[in-house]
Simulated scan of single mutants.
Amino acid sequence: MRCARPPVSVMPLSMDQRAVDRCAGHRQPRRMLNMPADYRSYGDRKPYVVADTLTALTGPAEGVVTLPHHLDWSGHAEYDLNRPARLVSMYKVVLTEAGSVDDLNTWLNADLLRRLWPALWLPTRLRRLWEGTFPELRRHYEPLEGQHRTA
């Protein structure tokens, strides 16, 4: 039986990924997209903001905060900073979505950022921009002897 619609390719897939379309009760592999030679992923093109100084990061260090809609439109913009997982999540959101240095200064706290830096799952380019500006962040998680740095 033929599918009523052809398979849809939405993202380039690496050789070890298997993405499938479900069509008429069976599975069909998606086709790879031919990407232009100068293709750059969204993470490599997205503009990121870096603080001017860490000392200007005077955001809240405790309590419950609600991020403005331009930073967090998820519907879960309330963060209890006393809960470590929510704190890390908020810092990731602010770092990746900030549109101005004022956003960073308002919502990030320098001491918390230094402490959380090793635990933040950030786009590689964003991490490099911050560590290039503030090498002291990198020093907070130098690998132990025999370990490899992954970020």
Score class of each variant (00 low, 15 high):
His26Thr: 14
Ala151Lys: 05
Ala51Glu: 03
Leu87Val: 00
Leu104Gln: 04
Thr150Asp: 08
Asp38His: 10
Gln147His: 08
Cys3His: 09
Tyr42Gln: 09
Glu78Ile: 05
Val20Met: 15
Arg139Cys: 06
Met1Trp: 13
Leu104Thr: 02
Leu129Asn: 06
Arg18Gly: 11
Asp16Trp: 07
Glu131Ala: 04
Pro68Phe: 03
His140Gly: 08
Arg128Ala: 13
Cys3Leu: 14
Asn82Pro: 00
Asp38Gly: 03
Ala61Met: 06
Leu108Gln: 02
Arg139Leu: 09
Gly59Lys: 01
Thr106Glu: 09
Asp72Gln: 04
Asp102Gly: 03
Arg27His: 11
Phe134Cys: 07
Tyr48Leu: 06
Tyr141Asn: 01
Ala4Phe: 12
Arg149Val: 00
Pro29Asn: 07
Ala24Gly: 04
Leu81Trp: 00
Pro36His: 02
Ser89Glu: 15
Val94Gln: 04
Leu122Trp: 03
Leu104Trp: 07
Pro123Ala: 14
Ser14Met: 11
Pro60Phe: 01
Pro123Leu: 09
Asp102Phe: 04
Ala85Val: 09
Met1Asn: 14
His69Arg: 14
Met1Thr: 14
Asn109His: 07
Asn109Gln: 05
Val88Asp: 03
Glu62Met: 08
Glu62Lys: 12
Val50Trp: 07
Leu104Gly: 02
Tyr91Gly: 00
Val101Trp: 02
Glu136Thr: 10
Gly146Pro: 04
Trp130Ala: 10
Arg138Ala: 13
Ser9Val: 02
Met35Ser: 07
Gly146Leu: 04
Thr150Ile: 12
Asn109Trp: 00
Gly25Trp: 09
Gly59Asp: 01
Asn82Cys: 01
Thr66Tyr: 02
Val8Ser: 12
Ser100Leu: 02
Leu81Asn: 00
Arg18Gln: 12
Thr124Leu: 15
Ala151Cys: 05
Leu129Asp: 10
Arg18Thr: 14
Ala61Gln: 11
Asp103Val: 01
Val65Pro: 13
Asp38Thr: 09
Val10Arg: 14
Leu57Asp: 05
Thr53Gln: 09
Met35Tyr: 02
Arg18Cys: 14
Glu142Trp: 01
Leu120Cys: 02
Leu33Arg: 10
Trp73Thr: 08
Thr124Ile: 10
Leu71Ser: 06
Asn109Pro: 03
Arg45Cys: 12
Thr66Arg: 15
Val65Asp: 08
Leu137Trp: 04
His69Pro: 04
Pro12Asn: 10
Met11His: 11
Cys3Gln: 09
Leu87Gln: 05
Glu145Val: 08
Ala85Glu: 12
Arg5Gly: 07
Glu62Trp: 06
Val101Ile: 10
Ala119Leu: 10
Ser14His: 14
Thr53His: 10
Pro143Ile: 00
Leu81Val: 00
Arg128His: 11
Trp130Ile: 06
Lys46Leu: 10
Lys92Pro: 01
Trp130His: 13
Arg125Ile: 04
Arg138Asp: 05
Arg115Leu: 08
Arg31Ala: 15
Pro135Tyr: 03
Leu67Pro: 06
Ala61Ile: 01
Leu67Asp: 04
Leu116Met: 04
Ser74His: 08
Trp117Ser: 06
Ser89Thr: 12
Ala85Ser: 12
Glu78Phe: 01
Ser89Phe: 07
Lys46Gln: 14
Leu129Glu: 13
Pro47Ala: 13
Val94Ser: 06
His140Glu: 08
Thr58His: 12
Pro60Ile: 00
Pro84Ala: 01
Met15Asp: 13
Arg128Leu: 12
Trp73Ala: 12
Met35Ala: 09
Arg5Ala: 15
